[in-house]
Design a protein around this nucleic acid. Structure first.
Lengths: 381, 381
DNA sequence: CACCACCATGTTAACGCTCACATGGTCGGA
DNA sequence: TCCGACCATGTGAGCGTTAACATGGTGGTG
């Protein structure tokens, strides 16, 4: 063919806009316009050496004049590299995952990659597999899985093809070759919360946990356990709940009821670490209704620092997670994995970002202890 | 070339997995394997007529045997249709936008489209333009813009190429040809909240609004205004805040201070409609501190129904928005726009989804009104 | 002065798919 | 019996790019 000659003749005389309606300019059009070969144009747009400054300028001018942009599909086809990363999230719009998503997307774009988003509604094996196929069809070069629930990780891990690195955002997973793990250090966060309470002089800290099929929940339990052990406290079980305020409230009521029953073993604890802010809110409400003072009688630490936590009654001491940083970390791991793969290595790595404690007004020394001259007696209450 | 012959010979004997390491099978490989032409294979995978059942089955078998999957890039290059939708969000992970994102992604996938995600950090013209170019490079066929702030919409509208339909998620925008608008009906939501308070017998309803460069905030003001007008109440201005609890708290304090100053014009209102739940939380806190009873002395309605709103003290009456449905609506509009464009039309449309009122415990009849023959004293505390 | 390296540039062939058209066989009606 | 319609299938070109290799000119070195 073709009428490319005509096209370019038009382009030379008419405005670029006029042509755009006809067809987007190709490398070839630019080449004709600049009086060079398409390969030279390719060299210019890819910033390759061995092009004279003069030619480079002329080509650049032609590019600008025609409003040329490289065709991504053609490039992908020719290079067999899609420049695309898959981002898979489970369909639960909690704030953390959402923020992580945005962090991932932003970091990916900074790295010059496209991001393909896929939502998997239920954490079933089938849904996960379908999603991975969806990504495979796009020839994504890496996948980020934001998977708060354990099952989904298992499937992702199993289905991950060896050639495509996967970063999973999930605390507590072990990295494997080609399978990276990024997470907020939930153990640290939980330890921070627990330590804060212990340092205030509390004899013990109770933990109200989220559902135990969530990684984050399990890790927070670990962190709490470890910190208590470090202070020489005996083993004890957490109170298992879910993430809702209703559950927090229910547990608060139960605690109050047991304490009222008079059994000293079941006395109302002086310090509670809740696995998220909603739980803390439910506890707060239960205690408020019962006239139990926070933090006078019992101290509470939450987790997440949700919007508004600073205006709970009282403002909540909690743990804040650096989600954007987490997103960035995901991409870093992925890119590292990709280039390592290209170099023939198959590394395994994990990375954690550190949460921070935000002290507000739900924590104070226990009723009868005096933290300045710290000296906790064996007895409690 | 090629060693395709060898490849397929291998495929015939070895497992598909063995070959995959060498090269992903192409149409051609499948054709060879099935003993037909590549075009016939193409017909099968595209479900086109004029293929005998027998052949179809044989081809299908070959596809399965080789684990063939169509190469998206090649298809895009050949058809000049990317099957990709751009999803642009502003980098603020509030819950609404996040849920909408997931809704969009899910609906797009159901419609067989890929979703390319881009985050624009600041709502500047430059950032927006860059994002649109990023999409243009991928030849997206439609764009969803989740743009809570006015400016970004303007830019998107201006930059939108006529050939790519744009759906903007923004209340109050006017659709234009090729520029669709999807939104939660914020005016309705605000009216619902206002009406609820008025129906309880309150003489007036004050509105604490979000920042007025947000569409949603402005629309809620409109809805509140309209409902008050419908009840024959005189015009009045809203109290402008932002979305934070701190602002709600500050406004609550100001209201209390004015009321304490004794000027009857500035008496403490009996009913407040807050533009979101965080604001409502701040108000709740201010009133609680001052010993002003909610809902005894003043009723409050929030907006969003954030997690935990049911365990505020007291549980918050609020307005819930159907974000997932909104996401679906976006895709419907976009697909309709795309096919209309293909048919040569250039429609303009908008669609709204309806929020619902969730009545809980922060609303009650006003102190002296008697809908259910209640009779409370004017004094407080 | 011959030779080779090196630089700027061009030429050609994929990449894997779809589209438009070509081919050959089958069947029914004139 | 012959012809055209229609069906099943095949052929070839082209989408816009990159990769590999080819070419011709220039300059430094022995």
């Amino acid at each position: 063919m073709t009428d490319v000659g005509d096209l370019v003749a038009v382009a030379d005389t008419a405005a670029a806009a006029g042509r755009a309606l006809l067809r987007r300019p190709s490398l070839h059009d630019v080449a004709l316009h600049a009086g060079v070969s398409h390969q030279t144009v390719s060299r210019v747009i890819n910033d390759r050496p061995n092009v004279s400054p003069d030619t480079r300028a002329r080509v650049q001018a032609a590019i600008d004049a025609l409003g040329y942009r490289r065709n991504a599909a053609a490039r992908i086809l020719a290079t067999n590299r899609s420049q695309t990363l898959g981002l898979m999230v489970q369909g639960e719009p909690r704030l953390g995952p959402a923020s992580t998503m945005l962090g991932v997307a932003a970091a990916a774009r900074d790295a010059g990659r496209y991001v393909s988003l896929a939502v998997v509604a239920e954490p079933s094996e089938q849904a996960t597999t379908e999603t991975l196929e969806y990504f495979r069809d796009q020839a994504v070069e890496g996948i980020v899985v934001i998977a708060p629930v354990a099952d989904i990780v298992e499937v992702a891990r199993a289905a991950a093809s060896p050639s495509v690195p996967v970063v999973v955002v999930a605390a507590g997973e072990r990295p494997r070759p080609g399978f990276f793990v990024a997470s907020v250090d939930q153990q640290l966060g939980a330890a921070l919360a627990t330590r804060h309470l212990l340092e205030l002089g509390h004899a013990d800290v109770v933990h109200v946990t989220g559902p135990l099929d969530w990684h984050d929940a399990v890790e927070r339990v670990h962190g709490w356990r470890a910190e208590r052990a470090a202070w020489g406290l005996p083993e004890r079980d957490p109170l298992v709940a879910d993430w809702t305020s209703a559950a927090g409230y229910r547990i608060g009521r139960r605690l109050l009821a047991h304490a009222a029953s008079g059994d000293p073993v079941d006395a109302l604890p002086t310090a509670i670490f809740a696995a998220n802010d909603q739980l803390a809110l439910g506890l707060l409400r239960a205690f408020d209704e019962a006239g139990v003072e926070v933090p006078g009688r019992v101290s509470i630490v939450g987790y997440d620092d949700i919007e508004g936590a600073d205006y709970f009654t009282p403002p909540l001491t909690t743990v804040r997670q650096p989600f954007e940083e987490l997103g960035k970390t995901c991409i870093e791991l992925l890119l590292a994995g990709m280039s390592a793969k290209a170099a023939g290595e198959v590394p395994e790595r994990s990375a954690k970002v550190a949460p921070t404690l935000v002290v507000r007004a739900t924590t104070a020394p226990p009723p009868r202890a005096q933290p300045p001259a710290r000296r906790s007696r064996g007895s409690r209450r």
